[in-house]
Amino acid sequence: MFVSNNFLRLGALSALVGMSLGVWMGANQDFVLRPVHAHINLLGFASMMLFGLFYRVFPAAGRGWLPMAHFVLSVIGFLILMPSLTLMLLGKPLFMPGMIASEIMLVASMALFVIIVFNATMAKDQSA
């Protein structure tokens, strides 16, 4: 339940942050950070909530090192990407290498999730 609960918590927090950024952008009529807003809502809220719900439906899939690696790569990649992307959009590409590394982490985390989903659903198919 650790992986599921923490993905759900981070997803909910991401929704709050993403919505707050959207309100701020609208109030200031400054939409330079709209890619950050979109990434917070899609990677942070939607993806993390779906990861958490998947692990809730398939609790056995949340055990072991693979889901923990998925969680760590997802969270670290997300936490590096958001400020790196923000700085790049504000004309300060100082953290471009960090942004590239975080994107690689996020793709790797999704590859792990694909493996986890296939393993969990194949096991479920065979028991039915």
Results as ranks from 00 to 15, higher is better:
G77N: 04
A69I: 12
P97K: 09
G22F: 03
G52T: 02
F54W: 04
G18T: 13
G98I: 06
L53S: 05
A61Y: 10
D125K: 10
E103F: 03
L21N: 06
M99P: 09
M110N: 04
F31T: 01
W65V: 10
Y55M: 10
Y55G: 03
I104R: 07
W24E: 00
F31N: 05
I115K: 14
G77F: 04
L13C: 02
G18M: 11
V36F: 01
A128T: 11
E103C: 10
A101N: 09
V57A: 15
M122N: 11
V3L: 07
G91D: 10
H39Q: 13
F71W: 08
T86A: 15
L87A: 14
S4N: 05
L94A: 13
L8E: 09
H70N: 09
F51S: 02
L87F: 15
I116N: 09
L66S: 10
F71R: 01
I80S: 10
L13T: 02
G22D: 07
N28Q: 07
V72W: 11
P67L: 09
F54L: 07
G26Y: 02
P35N: 06
L94M: 14
G11L: 04
A60I: 00
N41C: 11
T86Y: 15
S74V: 03
M48N: 08
F54K: 02
V3D: 06
F58P: 07
D30C: 00
L16F: 14
L21V: 03
M25T: 01
V36Y: 02
A60N: 11
K124R: 14
L112V: 01
I100P: 05
L33Q: 01
M19E: 08
A15V: 11
F31P: 01
A69V: 15
F58C: 02
I115T: 14
S127Y: 03
G22C: 07
L85A: 06
N5E: 15
M88Y: 15
D125W: 08
A12Y: 13
L16W: 11
K92N: 12
Q126P: 00
V72M: 11
